[in-house]
Every structure is written in structure tokens, then in C-alpha cells.
């Protein structure tokens, strides 16, 4: 069943025509990976879904209802979590406060999720009262992801979670996404093809602001020609 459908969206950032017809679908319970070279439009696609980069044409439907005309906070409240590329940590708030600001409810389910998150990322427990600005890059990424896990979102948009991180932390982050996969649908933008192919079910390749290829992740793993052409992997 399709949870999110993006149909031929076009987005301008200032005078630049960034997205020129991106289409893809995210099916419930799957990890959909958006691949492509730097500057292809992957981040803008996620920002367009969240309403942060409003689209000028096309349709975005979530649970078969259009959401592209809604403001960002309403899109978020429909159950869509977003982990931005720059992590978006609030530097002057402690880890605890960062988590609490992200909590939409403070019921038993959320507290259970918090416990699960702290088991997943024990570092966060260690630095619970430390301000976000004093965390390392890896800890910030963990906090950013943890913040999106705290609510029972039906869909998670995660933008380049491995960017600039040490391999050991990348592994931790990817393992958490794999665990999260059982609870929610994920759309992942990832440059690290090895990681993306390990957890992804379906892929879409975006090039020059358009979707140029899509299919099953298993197929892409074996298609050397496609990987070389669009992802620069020899």
C-alpha cells in the first residue's frame, strides 16, 4: 500500500529551477532510498515533501490525501518525521530539552519509546544534561535521529544520516534505521551506497532534478552499468 506519492513535482529555490519533475512512491513498511549525485535535488525533494521548499507544480499525496498545500507544521502533525541534513540540533538546549521539544505526547507509549531510544543510543543518556552545542558531530546526528523516533510517526524522512561521520557511528545509525523499519516507513537520502543498499527495499535515482530510474534495490546491486552511469560507482 502506498503511503506517500510524489507526482511530477517542480520546485524553485529563488530563481533556480531545482526539481523539474520528481516522482516516486513510498510503500508502507519499506525503506525507499533516493539516490543521485551531489546537487541532483534529493535534499530539495525531502524539503518539498515537508513544505519547507514549496512546490510550484505537481502533487504530493499522503494516505491518498494531498498535502502539498499544507504548512509545514500541519504536514508534520500528520505523522511525518524529518531528520535534516544539517541535523537541526538546538545548540542552547540540553539533550533532554531537545528530546522534550520534539515530543508531541508525553504518554506511556512515548516514554517506552524514549527508553528504547536510549538503549539504542546510550551516548545520549550519558550527555542527557549537556547542551546540544557541545556534542560531537556523531552525537548530534544520533540526537537528531532520536528526536525523530520519539513520536509514533508513520513516515520518516532521513537526509544523509551518514554524512561526515566515523564508520562506527554510521554503522550504529544504520542499525537504528534497520530497527526502526519494523515500526515505520522510511524514505532515506543517502550517498553511501553500501549502507543504502543494505537497508533499502526500493530505490529511485534522481538526476538533474528528475527521477530517471527506479526499481528493486536487489536489481540495482547487480546492475553495474546503472551504478556507474548515475552514481559514479565503478
Amino acid at each position: 500500500m502506498t503511503l506517500l506519492k510524489v507526482d511530477a513535482i517542480e520546485t524553485y529555490l529563488g530563481q533556480y529551477h531545482i526539481l523539474q519533475g520528481v516522482s516516486f512512491e513510498a510503500k508502507k513498511g519499506e525503506v525507499t532510498v533516493l539516490l543521485g549525485r551531489n546537487g541532483a535535488g534529493k535534499t530539495t525533494t525531502l524539503r518539498s515533501v515537508m513544505g519547507l521548499a514549496p512546490i510550484s507544480d505537481g502533487v504530493i499525496t499522503y494516505n491518498n490525501k494531498p498535502i502539498h498545500k499544507l504548512p509545514t507544521y500541519k504536514i508534520s502533525n500528520k505523522g511525518i518525521g524529518f531528520v535534516p541534513e544539517d541535523q537541526g540540533i538546538f545548540n542552547d538546549l540540553t539533550v533532554e530539552e531537545n528530546m522534550k521539544v520534539a515530543m508531541k505526547k508525553k504518554d506511556d507509549v512515548t516514554m517506552e519509546r524514549l527508553e528504547w531510544i536510549l538503549k539504542l543510543f546510550p551516548d545520549l543518556k550519558t550527555f542527557w544534561h549537556k547542551k546540544g552545542g557541545y556534542l560531537s558531530g556523531g552525537q548530534k546526528q544520533m540526537l537528531s535521529i532520536a528526536r525523530s523516533y520519539i513520536n509514533s510517526n508513520d513516515l520518516l524522512l532521513i537526509d544523509e544520516p551518514s554524512k561526515g561521520l566515523a564508520p562506527i557511528i554510521v554503522e550504529k545509525v544504520m542499525r537504528s534505521i534497520q530497527e526502526m523499519k519494523e515500526k515505520t516507513t522510511v524514505i532515506l537520502v543517502e550517498q553511501n551506497f553500501m549502507m543504502a543498499s543494505m537497508i533499502g527495499d526500493r530505490f529511485y535515482i534522481i538526476d538533474d532534478g528528475k527521477t530517471v530510474h527506479s526499481g528493486d534495490m536487489k536489481e540495482l546491486k547487480e546492475d553495474e552499468q546503472l551504478k556507474k552511469q548515475y552514481l559514479g560507482i565503478a
Binding site: N77, G88, F90, D92, L93, R147
Partner: peptide, 13 residues
């Protein structure tokens, strides 16, 4: 949080 990153707060709902 708004002072630090308005868009991020909006995307938290």
C-alpha cells in the same frame, strides 16, 4: 528553539 532554527521547529509540528 525558534530563536535557533525556526524551520526546524516548524517541521517538529
Amino acid at each position: 528553539a525558534i530563536r535557533e532554527n525556526e524551520q526546524r521547529v516548524e517541521s517538529l509540528g
